[in-house]
Amino acid sequence: MNGFKTLAATGLLALGLAASAQAQSYPVDQIHITVPFPAGGTTDILARELAGPLGEELGATVIVENRPGAGGTVGSNYVAHANADGSQLLLTATHHVINPGLRDNLPYDTMEDFSEVALIALVPNALVVHPDVPANSVAELIELAKEDPDGLNFGSSGVGGSNHLSGELFKSMTGIDMLHVPYPGAAPAMTDLLGGHIPVMFDSLPTVVPHVQSGKLRILGVTTAERVSSLPDVPTIAEAGVPGYAAASWFGLYGPAGLPEDARTSLDAALTKLLGSEEIATTFKKLNVEPGELVGSDFETFVADEIEKWQGVVKSAGVELQ
């Protein structure tokens, strides 16, 4: 087995040397996808579901590695400074575009140090309240907050997460006041919302739906620009009284800056095919996320817009760190 590997490697090396006058060939044998969050989270699960089909598509072994820490910064930093031959990729969440506004001492430049590969998936957030809150719609909630500015708290998974800033965006667009109460992760915040200890929260749709169905939470609206296909009766926050409001969580695939042209082309082609495939559609439906559609330069424009949007929200909310 080892002898065969050595032989194969020697053969590949010879091929490589022969081809070295031209560009180095892609794909490489092994592709590492860094997930900057712990194993078992949505980002991790997406990466593992993507690894198999992507590996088949490219004819390479795709390995998922978790490098958690500092709101995704540790893992992003690792990939930003990794070898840019297409063997090191990063799959990360909305944190990636929120961090530049939030932290002024990032060890990398979010726009300059990465090649944007593809928007992998989107997860709508929902605005939910405990059933004891006397508000049946977004408009009634705004009314309630205006009557009693000290009365409403909203929970989040931590300072600077997408469900914190969805709330801050809501506050700045409606001019109401709600006190932000951060928790160490979305789960403990959800527990306190179910127990009625905090009245309001923005959380991902898959998490809240079972509680809404059992009557333990009331859903007032979704944060996406358009209604969600699985819940056609739930209005968007934009149409329910806050025009222009949009704040989905999303997951993107990146490489280090300066990916070689053939790596870009192969990745573009593979992801365009995968994200449109029946297989990924089924898998993602199971995970309650929607496949992304943006690849390459379209995705790059999207990232730039998102960074600008969240920078504005962070500034108006006054949550800048350090």
């Binding site: 989270g41 699960i45 593992r48 998490t207 995970l287």
Partner: peptide, 24 residues
């Protein structure tokens, strides 16, 4: 559907992979 610690959070993550949303 609320994990008590990091290990439970991982088990919940596994449930999601199988398309089961933990909850009441």
């Amino acid at each position: 559907g609320v994990p008590g610690d990091a290990i439970m959070a991982m088990m919940l993550g596994a449930l999601l992979i199988f398309g089961i949303t933990p909850g009441p």
